[in-house]
Amino acid sequence: MAIKPRVKVPKSVAAGEYFTVKTLINHKMESGQRKDKEGNKIPRKIINLFEANFNGENVITVNVEPAVSTNPFFEFQMKIEAAGDLAFKWTDDDGSVYETSKPIAIG
């Protein structure tokens, strides 16, 4: 199945007040520790970096290791002063990048 990020972001928030953002992406997070039926190591393939930027400014960056569970989940709190776009980016070991963004209004 295609890798598709899911994010939960409020449509509008009060300026300067913290709100919750949740993200979940379907990814095996193959740790590189497992072996296949023939005893060969299954190569590592994980999301190694997660970033969220609001209007181009970094909100959170997470360097991710294989110890993060399958279907990585991140929940964080942030605040904004003005409306804009919250952009999410997940970087895969194979170089693939999965992105999505959500507009947030002040109201």
Partner: peptide, 29 residues
């Protein structure tokens, strides 16, 4: 850091000015 994992590194989170310094996640032990 997960001290008893074969590779103890789990993650490093960096917080920008607009983020509260907290994070929830799910990990392997």
């Amino acid at each position: 850091v997960a001290t008893g994992n074969p590779t103890p590194r789990v993650m490093v989170a960096h917080f920008g000015a607009s983020a509260e310094s907290r994070l929830s996640t799910r990990i392997r032990l």
